[in-house]
């Protein structure tokens, strides 16, 4: 079970958090302008990387804030934690 360093609360057990999938997928500002394929790319396509992955997490049983983490999926090491809207530090 991971220890996750919530940027608002500090280090907490994984059981307090909910994973929210791949990070940095921005909802298109003008969905109506998009073709079916472009919309499908936003809606369905997600990466499944062995190695460095950028993920959304929510401190659902804590401050309920969303934030991002950088995790190495091969050994579960969390390389960095950063707030929504911030640039990934690595």
């Amino acid at each position: 079970m991971f220890l996750i360093n919530c940027p608002f609360c500090g280090e907490r057990e994984q059981s307090e958090f909910k994973a929210g999938g791949e990070a940095h997928i921005v909802r298109p500002k003008q969905p109506t302008e998009l073709s079916d394929d472009e919309w499908a790319e936003y809606l369905f396509m997600r990466k499944n990387i062995k190695g460095i992955q950028y993920e959304r997490w929510n401190h659902i049983h804590g401050c309920r804030k969303w934030f991002n983490i950088v995790r190495d999926t091969s050994n579960d090491e969390i390389k960095a934690v950063y707030k929504m809207g911030e640039k990934p530090p690595i």
């Binding site: 929210g20 921005v26 959304r56 929510n58 659902i60 969303w66 929504m84």
Partner: peptide, 13 residues
């Protein structure tokens, strides 16, 4: 509630 918070925090801050 979780879904609404998600949109508010991440898409429409």
């Amino acid at each position: 509630l979780g879904k609404l918070e998600d949109y508010l925090q991440t898409e429409w801050p």
